[in-house]
């Protein structure tokens, strides 16, 4: 039986819509982590799942072309960011990883509480995205 050319129109069309929903929800989870359920870990896992959905519905080569990110460097950037927030507090004479927060007036958003825990959370987020995608892509590309 001759193989029929695969035709993934349904999956690919839906992926184009869904990836935006999943990515926006993952960013929401990342920033909601301070006062609601969420945070860097679950947000990073959700971003990784959106990118894995892209890899599932399109082939690896075209996603590599449109998303030219080496995920191992993403892990490094995340770790550096997390350590840098800790060292930044040491520069002002406080202990390592001391947290600061203040209230700022941001246009469009109004009064907002910004803390130095957010860069730390973004670091966790980047580490989780990088680690999950490195694991999955390393297993997927092992076609020797």
């Amino acid at each position: 039986m001759k193989p029929i050319k695969s035709n993934d129109v349904m999956l690919q069309t839906l992926t184009r819509i869904l990836v935006f929903i999943i990515l926006s929800f993952s960013i929401y989870l990342l920033f909601a982590g301070h006062n609601h359920p969420g945070g860097g870990f679950i947000g990073g896992l959700m971003t990784a799942s959106a990118i894995v959905l892209l890899y599932l519905s399109f082939d690896i080569k075209s996603i590599k072309k449109s998303l030219p990110i080496n995920f191992i460097t993403v892990i490094g950037i995340g770790l550096l960011l997390a350590v840098a927030t800790g060292i930044a507090s040491m520069l002002f004479g406080y202990p390592f990883l001391t947290q600061f927060f203040d209230y700022f007036h941001i246009p469009l958003l109004g009064e907002a509480e910004l803390t130095t825990a957010i860069p730390f959370d973004v670091g966790v987020y980047l580490v989780v995205v990088g680690a999950a995608l490195t694991i999955i892509l390393t297993i997927a590309e092992d076609d020797i």
Binding site: M10, L14, I17, L18, I21
Partner: peptide, 12 residues
């Protein structure tokens, strides 16, 4: 968002 998401994904 969950309603929209399930409505889109489950049939596919």
């Amino acid at each position: 968002l969950g309603i929209v998401f399930v409505f889109l994904t489950a049939p596919v």
